[in-house]
Design a protein around this nucleic acid. Structure first.
Length: 405
DNA sequence: AGTCCACAGGAAGGGCAGGCGA
DNA sequence: TCGCCTGCCCTTCCTGTGGACT
């Protein structure tokens, strides 16, 4: 067996001329000192929250905008500044930030409250208590707090779709029940039509102020990327057109700045690994497919066994390149899925459940499931793959290894 | 205009795993 | 260990629906 030397790998790496000098600046966790093209929103939110500096309750606000439009960044930026200022003025201000999408942290009423307790420095069990009890703990913890409390609920649409709006209703009641604590809620949502899904009372008390974050266009994205590249990538290491390409690709995807930053970062990493002098447009292309692949792989890894089996069934169907070109319908998937389960001696689920799983796979962007009506022959979903065949085959292979089909 | 197909998808609840306090 | 709680995955039962067919 040939002995390969890690020492060699490390030395080789250290010999290369690094492309980045501060890669952190190209990640979402980085908060830049200035946020281009969001001046209006920063000012608007600043005006709303400034009332906290006089010890008054800021209006509840709702922030809308699709992914990567700077909602979270702007909110955190304004809140940080507010916190700083309130310290100078010796005012009581507490800001609790929760990302409602984080699995196992805040995707249920109980977990959200437990998390709020936790970041409010109150220890509660992660599970085991009645939800009422956890409400009591949280309310007790803030009932005597004399000051302004701002709760930021990021991805609030996820929360409401999973657990309903009861929790929001209960939170908005705090101001009536407690005299000292002045609570303001900032809801951040990717879904523009989301507020229509809420109870009218919750909606009216939550949306006292509304801010809209429009998607960035390609020119604005270029601007943002140039600014970030300056503080993260060594001079002269980006080929002309790379930043523009990242911007253009991301502008197509609803003006998502996060995506643009990821593209540039991953392209840089790829170029660095190949020991290239400059990041090229070709690296951006490779980065694009790598990001898609990683996203899908991560999504599939966390899926339950039955989801994997169903996805396996669907991919197997498209693998056969017979010229029938027939559409795959829910009923077909179910039949094929049942025979697969019988073949490998697995328990199988009902069609009702399968229907839900197909919806989930659709939402994950792995398949397209369009509802169609075939008139006399019923109403069903037409299923196709939303990912390249090559990626699908790779996924199938990994499910195969995982489940030993 | 009415029928009927093949589902979609809502509602309610079961069973199990896992965590907690007593 | 037991009882209680939540989360997750699932089933059962049900109503709703778009459009080809009669």
């Amino acid at each position: 067996m040939s002995q390969f030397s890690l020492e060699g790998v490390f030395n080789e790496y250290l010999k290369t001329d690094p492309i980045f000098f501060n890669k952190q600046a190209l990640t979402i966790s980085y908060t830049p000192s200035n946020i281009p093209h969001r001046e209006r929103q920063i000012k608007q939110l600043g005006i709303i929250l400034a009332t906290a500096l006089r010890g008054e309750r800021p209006s509840n606000s709702f922030i809308y905008g699709s992914t990567g439009t700077g909602k979270t960044l702007v909110t955190q930026h304004v809140c940080n500044a507010l916190e700083e200022k309130s310290k100078q003025l010796n005012k009581n201000l507490k800001i609790l930030y929760v990302n409602c999408k984080m699995k196992r942290v805040s995707d249920t009423e109980y977990r959200l409250l437990a998390y709020l307790c936790e970041i409010n420095k109150l220890e509660v069990p992660k599970t085991g208590l009645a939800t009422e009890q956890i409400y009591k703990y949280f309310f007790d913890s803030i009932s005597n707090y004399d000051g302004v409390l701002i709760i930021i609920l990021d991805e609030i649409d996820e929360l409401v779709s999973k657990v309903g709006d009861t929790i929001l209703y209960n939170l908005t009641r705090i101001n009536q029940d407690f005299k000292k604590c002045k609570l303001s809620i900032i809801g951040i949502s990717n879904n523009l039509s989301f507020s229509n899904e809420m109870d009218a009372r919750v909606k009216s008390s939550l949306s006292e102020e509304e801010l809209i974050f429009p998607p960035y266009n390609a020119v604005q994205l270029t601007d943002i990327l140039k600014h970030r590249a300056e503080i993260s990538i060594n001079k002269g290491r980006i080929e002309d057109g790379v930043i523009e390409k990242c911007s253009a690709l991301s502008a197509q995807e609803h003006g998502d700045a996060r995506r643009a930053l990821d593209l540039l970062r991953v392209a840089g990493e790829l170029a660095e690994r190949k020991n290239k002098n400059k990041i090229t447009e070709e690296d951006v292309d490779v980065a694009q497919s790598k990001i898609d692949r990683d996203r899908i792989n991560d999504a599939i890894k966390t899926q339950p066994k039955q989801s994997k089996l169903i996805l396996y069934t669907i991919i197997s169907y498209f693998e056969k390149d017979d010229d029938e070109n027939q559409n795959l319908l829910t009923g077909d998937v179910y039949d094929k899925y049942i025979s697969l389960c019988k073949k490998i001696k697995q328990k199988y689920i009902t069609q009702r459940r399968l229907s839900d799983i197909i919806s989930e796979l659709d939402m994950l962007g792995i398949i397209n499931a369009k509802i169609i009506s075939k008139g006399r022959y019923g109403r069903t979903r037409e299923i196709s793959l939303a990912i390249p065949l090559s990626t699908a085959f790779r996924i199938k292979k990994s499910i195969n290894q995982d489940l030993e089909i």
